[in-house]
Computed example of a mutant assay.
Amino acid sequence: MKLVRFKTNDKISFGSLEGSKIQVIHGDIFGDFEITNEEYNLSEVKLLSPCTPSKIVCVGLNYRDHAEEMKDNLPTEPIIFIKPSTAVIGPNENIKYPSMSKQVDYEAELGIVIKDKIRNLKIEEVNKHVLGYTCFNDVTARDLQKKDGQWTRAKSFDTFAPFGPAIVTNIDASNLNIQLLLNGEIKQNSNTNKLIFSIETLVSFISKIMTLLPGDIIATGTPSGVGPMKVGDKIEVRIENIGILENYVV
């Protein structure tokens, strides 16, 4: 199932996307809900970020080729940082280039969407607490990351956490092709089977540090090929069986 969040006639709703049709959902996608017969064409609505996370926990250096690209040693345990909820934008929304940065990079990533409140999970418990998966772009002010030596400022600007267009449930995300296209040209091209730390390992590890809440996102790291964007660029994150996240830089 592809779960979306959308706006029409100043009303925000959840829905189930099938092709170009959205069926309205009544209830809580993180709990009990039903799919109604009320229907919209995709062209009639504005898609929003598919949920509203309290936080986004990102994983750094989780593809071997990206660690080599950044000239870093392979991590022995996940390296994590947090993006604020205020950085979130949805599909077809604009990434705003901050005036204090001279190099803003794209980073295509698989996003894990947490289903319920969790803490201290064992690896074998993880899957039943994952609602689904989404496309994520970990936008980064690379010059500020290098200047600061830590990542908070570089990762936290408003609009630096695009994700969507949907949350896809009931799929195995361990072997999916992932790409980033810059103005139609493939810049990143990899597969989630190249993750250093698996989805289950990441969720378990993070849950032992902090409580995760329904709708929280874990961004699982980016493959090699990261690079700069400029104003006017079109950015697409494409993940097999999940969808295409499109944004523009302004």
Score class of each variant (00 low, 15 high):
Arg119Phe: 04
Asn120Trp: 06
Asn120Gly: 04
Leu121Phe: 04
Leu121Ile: 04
Lys122His: 02
Ile123Trp: 00
Glu125Asp: 14
Glu125Pro: 00
Val126Met: 13
Asn127Tyr: 08
Asn127Phe: 06
Asn127Val: 00
His129Met: 11
Val130Lys: 04
Val130Gln: 12
Val130Ala: 13
Gly132Arg: 06
Thr134Trp: 00
Thr134Cys: 08
Cys135Thr: 01
Cys135Gln: 03
Asp138Arg: 14
Val139Ser: 04
Val139Lys: 11
Ala141His: 05
Ala141Glu: 09
Arg142Asp: 10
Asp143Met: 12
Asp143Leu: 11
Asp143Val: 13
Leu144His: 03
Lys147Val: 00
Asp148Trp: 11
Asp148Ser: 06
Gly149Phe: 01
Gly149Glu: 03
Gln150Cys: 09
Trp151Leu: 07
Trp151Ala: 12
Thr152Ser: 13
Thr152Leu: 14
Arg153Met: 06
Arg153Phe: 03
Ala154Arg: 03
Lys155Phe: 07
Lys155Trp: 11
Lys155Met: 09
Lys155Arg: 08
Ser156Met: 01
Asp158Asn: 06
Phe160Arg: 13
Ala161Val: 09
Ala161Thr: 08
Ala161Leu: 11
Ala161Pro: 00
Pro162Phe: 05
Pro162Lys: 07
Pro162Ile: 10
Phe163Arg: 12
Phe163Lys: 12
Pro165Asp: 06
Val168Thr: 08
Val168Arg: 03
Thr169Tyr: 05
Asn170Ala: 09
Ile171Ser: 09
Asp172Cys: 09
Asp172Trp: 08
Asp172Arg: 10
Ala173Glu: 04
Ala173Phe: 05
Ser174Trp: 14
Ser174Thr: 15
Leu176Gly: 01
Asn177Trp: 13
Ile178Asp: 13
Gln179Arg: 15
Gln179Gly: 11
Gln179Ser: 15
Leu181His: 12
Leu181Pro: 14
Leu181Gln: 10
Leu182Trp: 05
Asn183Glu: 11
Glu185Thr: 15
Glu185Asp: 15
Ile186Cys: 05
Ile186Thr: 10
Lys187Leu: 07
Lys187Val: 08
Gln188Ser: 13
Gln188Glu: 14
Asn189Asp: 15
Asn191Gly: 07
Asn193Lys: 15
Lys194Ser: 12
Lys194Ile: 00
Lys194Pro: 02
Lys194Thr: 01
Leu195Gly: 12
Ile196Leu: 15
Phe197Cys: 08
Phe197Gly: 12
Ser198Leu: 11
Ser198Gly: 11
Glu200Ser: 14
Glu200Val: 04
Thr201His: 04
Leu202Thr: 09
Val203Gln: 03
Val203Asp: 09
Val203Met: 04
Val203Thr: 08
Ser204Thr: 02
Ser204His: 03
Ser204Gln: 02
Phe205Val: 01
Phe205Ile: 00
Phe205Gly: 02
Ile206Ala: 11
Ser207Gly: 02
Ser207His: 02
Lys208Leu: 00
Ile209Trp: 00
Ile209Tyr: 01
Ile209Pro: 00
Met210Asp: 01
Met210Tyr: 01
Thr211Asp: 10
Thr211Met: 05
Pro214Asp: 00
Gly215Lys: 07
Ile217Pro: 14
Thr220Ile: 13
Gly221Val: 05
Gly221Ala: 06
Thr222Gly: 06
Thr222Arg: 03
Thr222Ala: 06
Thr222Phe: 02
Pro223Gln: 14
Pro223Arg: 09
Pro223Trp: 14
Ser224Val: 13
